[in-house]
Design a binder for these strands. Structure first.
Lengths: 105, 105
DNA sequence: TGACAGTATGTCAGGTCTGATATAACTTGA
DNA sequence: TCAAGTTATATCAGACCTGACATACTGTCA
């Protein structure tokens, strides 16, 4: 695993220390977090591409600015459900969502 | 929308009546439910293909038989998170999950 | 430097989801 | 038909997630 990914995982609220510590994450857990990170990144991409603020996005998806920030950070308190619903609310298609998830890790 | 899909949505706990009632479901909501149904169907496919019982799957994913049944029925009380985690626990890859979601509605 | 817009982080009450349990319904073979 | 195996449905306490709010941080412009 690359350092950059470890950093993302850490800031996403997952402890990633030395090799021994890292073994605490099973393959499934890693896959799940990466999947969440992919959705989170995509959410930010869409927002930035359109020049929207987190506050604006929050209004569109009936949430709050702070939660949008947490979503983009793939915070552990954010579910895949919320990410997917948000993406759909912002106009992304089911096909798009699937492709984002399927993108090679 | 086909009758068969309306039936799936209904049994998944979503009210689908006449045309007017149907309008209560927004496009996003429909896309989200269909996404869940796709994951649910895939979970059942994997299980049946391997000849596993719901009880066995429950043990593998550290859950209960009743919840596996609800998952396969795409019950409203089941989240996408749970479906995705379960699929990953059963050996499905992130790529596979993405493809299932992306499959044309 | 200050003021401002935007983003990040911490907290929490209320609502939702989860595994577990009980039990009903369905299938299949003898 | 009965019994055993499997799946479906109902319920609930405890765990978790959510939007909202407060506040801190960051960048930018004058």
């Amino acid at each position: 695993m690359q350092k950059s990914m470890e950093k993302r995982l850490e800031s996403a609220g997952w402890r990633v220390g030395d090799a021994a510590d890292f073994l605490e994450l099973t393959d499934e857990e890693t896959a799940f977090v990466e999947l969440k990170l992919a959705l989170a990144d995509y959410l930010r991409d869409i927002r930035v591409k359109h020049g929207w603020t987190q506050t604006y996005v929050a209004r569109v998806i009936s949430s709050s600015q702070s939660r949008v920030a947490k979503m983009e950070a793939a915070d552990p308190s954010v579910t895949v459900d919320l990410l997917v619903k948000s993406l759909l609310a912002l106009g992304a298609s089911r096909l798009e969502v699937g492709r984002v998830i399927a993108r090679a890790a």
